[in-house]
């Protein structure tokens, strides 16, 4: 069982968290092409990499961003949305 650091509540067991999908900026819906929009809505990369993900601490309802290496399942950093990570 893993632990994860919630930027508000500190280290908590992973069962207290819910994965919210990859963090993806939405393209301007009025301006992008159908293809760009479909790419945003439907396509996700499964390739192993360091990824930015949404996570939610369920007990407190805190959403935050986690940077995770999906090949080692190592959580490198967690921070609130809008607060950049340390190595951006």
């Amino acid at each position: 069982m893993k632990v994860m650091r919630c930027p508000v509540n500190g280290w908590r067991p992973i069962q207290e968290f819910s994965y919210g999908g990859a963090f993806r900026p939405m393209p301007q819906p009025g301006e992008c092409s159908n293809r760009q929009w479909a790419d945003y809505v439907f396509h996700r990369s499964g390739a192993a990499a360091v990824k930015k993900e949404w996570w939610c601490h369920l007990a407190s309802g805190v959403w935050f961003i986690a940077e995770r290496n999906t090949s080692t399942d190592e959580i490198l950093e967690t921070y609130l949305h809008g607060e950049d990570g340390h190595h951006e």
Partner: peptide
């Protein structure tokens, strides 16, 4: 739904509170 709402409120930077 409540959880997703909180996330969208964050993403859109709206001044809104969602109470479940």
């Amino acid at each position: 739904v409540a959880r997703e709402m909180t996330r969208w409120a964050l993403t859109w930077s709206l001044k809104v509170m969602v109470l479940n």
